[in-house]
Structures are given as C-alpha cells and as structure tokens.
C-alpha cells in the first residue's frame, strides 16, 4: 500500500485540503504534513497528504547515474560524453514540460 498519487493543492482549510490530481479529478484530503500551501505539489495516499514534493531535489536521483558513469570504466562510451548526453536529455524534457504550459 505504497500507492501515492501526486497532486497540486488548491485550497487549505485547517486539517483539510483540496487537491487537484489532474485529469479533472479533485478530492479533499487530510493534511498530514507540517505546512502546506496553495500550489504546493504533494503526495496523497488514501486520503491524506503524506509528503510534499521537493522541486529542488526533483532530478537529484540522476546524480547517481553521473557518479556511476564517472567511476565505471565502459568500453563503448566516454564518461564525459555519457554525462553530457544524459544532461541534455534531462534539459530537453524539462524544457518541453515548461513549453507545454
């Protein structure tokens, strides 16, 4: 039961918040985190906000790929080339997302 759905907070009233899950689905949820504000992105599990999404850490997981590329000798790709390729792809995806709005 680790199923969590990402949503955007539309309104907060005491221990309840209204969350937009996208696709026209809007539901109320208990506020289970210390502080939550309108426009925050949150993880909702079975009717409670269990966590907020940290935008600064959003692509941090890809640092592990870069780290691995630097330290693992590969026969086919130079580490720098690999890292550049991954970063470019990430930037493209981030850009596409912004353009879509």
């Amino acid at each position: 039961m680790c199923l969590g759905v990402y949503g955007k907070v539309l309104e907060v009233k005491g221990d309840l918040a209204t969350v937009d899950f996208g696709g026209g689905l809007v539901k109320n949820a208990f506020v289970g985190v210390e502080e939550v504000a309108v426009n925050d992105y949150v993880v909702v599990h079975a009717g409670i906000i269990v966590s907020k999404l940290n935008e600064a850490e959003f692509t941090a997981a890809f640092n592990y790929l870069e780290e691995a590329a630097k330290q693992l000798p590969t026969e086919t790709t130079e580490p720098d080339e690999y890292i550049l390729r991954t970063r470019k792809r990430l930037e493209t995806l981030l850009g596409v997302n912004t353009d879509m709005k």
């Binding site: 949503g7 899950f21 996208g22 999404l53 959003f58 995806l93 997302n97 912004t98 879509m100 709005k101």
Partner: peptide, 9 residues
C-alpha cells in the same frame, strides 16, 4: 518563469 507541473514532469 512559470513553475513546472511536477505531476506531468
């Protein structure tokens, strides 16, 4: 800059 939509991202 408009904030990214983290759901679609």
């Amino acid at each position: 800059k408009e904030r990214n939509d983290l759901r679609t991202l």
